[in-house]
Amino acid sequence: MKELNPLLHSQLRLAVMSILMNVEEADFVYLKEKTESTAGNLSVQIDKLTTAGYIVVEKGFVGKKTRTVCQITDLGRAAFEEYVEALKDYLNL
């Protein structure tokens, strides 16, 4: 049986990846609202996913406020698909 990817097998990171699999791009505020997480925690998890190359983050400005936009990469998409396949194996789906 395939091992579950430890980077994805975590509540918040999996939630972020699930959202980004379904949209073209999402900003930090949207992800925070949909995952019902704290800004600090979300920021840490986004950094981990970025370091792994699963997502790309683009920081910009809207007026004086910063805007962080996240987008899934091909590597992230493949890792997510592999993770879902492994989950199916575990649960005999």
């Binding site: 579950l4 097998h9 975590s10 509540q11 918040l12 990171r13 999996l14 939630a15 699930s18 959202i19 699999m21 379904n22 949909k34 995952t35 019902e36 997480s37 925690n41 840490v44 998890q45 993770y83 879902v84 989950l87 575990y90 649960l91 789906l93």
Partner: peptide
């Protein structure tokens, strides 16, 4: 939502809920 380890069943639930 937090950074905690989850079971396989919870993994599927998170994915479907976010979708």
């Amino acid at each position: 939502m937090d950074e905690k380890k989850i079971t396989e069943r919870e993994g599927i639930e998170i994915i479907t809920s976010m979708i």
